[in-house]
Each structure stands twice: as C-alpha cells, then as structure tokens.
C-alpha cells in the first residue's frame, strides 16, 4: 500500500487494510507524534490531517488514507524547517503539562487557523471540541491559539 505522509511517499506491506492509520504511523513508520488515547475517536490525541482536514487516525482505516495527503505533527513545521506559529505559541505559553494530548490539540488548531485565520472564542470551542486534555490545559490552549493567529497575521502583513 502506498501512503503519502508529510510529503514523503511510503510503501507499507503486510498491513491489513482495516488497520487504523494511527497504528500504521506508530508501529510501521515510526511516527510517534499521534497518540493512542481511546481508540474510538473520542479524545483526539491521534488527530492528523487528511488532505488538510483533521481526522481521528485511530478510527480511519489505512486504506482510506492511501493515495491521500496525510500530515502529522512531525510534518507541521514550515518548509524552511522553522516551527509552525502554533508550535512556537505552545512553547511560549508553556501549554503542556503531561503533553500527551498536545500533538493532537495542535493539529486540530492548525486546521482551524488554516480555514479561519482570526478565530473567536466560540470558533475555538467548536474546532477544539474533539480534543480532550486530561491535565486541564484548556486556558492556555485558548491563549496559544489566539497568540498564534496574531503572529500569523503579523507575518502575512509584513
């Protein structure tokens, strides 16, 4: 099976078509950023982009990702290698506690900012509703998203 992940082509053999994308990323391709949390698309720790749309990779069969563009947290940085504005904001606002859910949170936020560069609080509530943070870092997640949106706007106008 052919997979395009973070702009790179991979051939994965001996994998059942029904295997969730999450486990192919983790066990077969060594991409550990997407996390297993619940296995039933409830927590969002496994969030990746499929053609730019956030999906819960624990519930997407790998066959559905074949031939599509998959982006994971490992491929979120800018083309020049610098961190995405959200990654920078997450570091600066010291968002993480345990950090386990944060790659999924950032991927959901990245999809939001792509379609909505200046989200309101309720836009954030809606876009981030699929991501649970058990440590309760939501206050900082919200701040970091607003901060990254402002940075991206500044970057675009300069």
């Amino acid at each position: 099976m052919r997979l395009s992940i973070n702009g790179k082509e991979h051939v994965v053999n001996e994998v059942d078509e029904a295997t969730p994308l999450l486990w192919v990323l983790r066990d077969h391709l060594g991409l550990f950023g997407a996390k297993y949390g619940c296995g039933i698309a409830q927590c969002g720790a496994c969030t990746v982009h499929l053609n730019g749309t956030p999906v819960r990779s624990c519930s997407v069969p790998v066959s559905a990702a074949s031939g599509q563009q998959v982006t994971t947290i490992e491929g979120l940085a800018n083309k020049d290698g610098s961190l995405h504005a959200l990654q920078k904001a997450w570091i600066e606002h010291d968002v993480a506690q345990c950090g386990y859910c944060q790659a999924g949170q950032i991927m959901s936020a990245a999809a939001l900012l792509k379609s909505n560069p200046k989200p309101t609080d309720s836009d954030i509530d809606a876009a981030m509703a699929g991501n649970v943070c058990r440590c309760g870092t939501y206050v900082r997640i919200r701040k970091a998203i607003h901060s990254a949106a402002a940075q991206l706007k500044e970057g675009a106008s300069s």
Binding site: G30, L31, G33, L83, L86, W90, G99, Y100, A103
Partner: peptide
C-alpha cells in the same frame, strides 16, 4: 519566574518521549 518546560520542544514536534513511544 516563569520558565517554560524543558521538554516543550519535543512535545510540540511529536518526538517519542512517552512510555508508549518506546521501541
């Protein structure tokens, strides 16, 4: 003072930090 976490960069770039990431 406010000091950011020493593992923050690894966390936001998806590095294999956790128990479940060990291979």
């Amino acid at each position: 003072t406010r000091v950011t976490g020493v593992d923050n960069l690894a966390i936001v770039t998806g590095k294999p930090l956790f128990g479940i990431d060990q291979v």
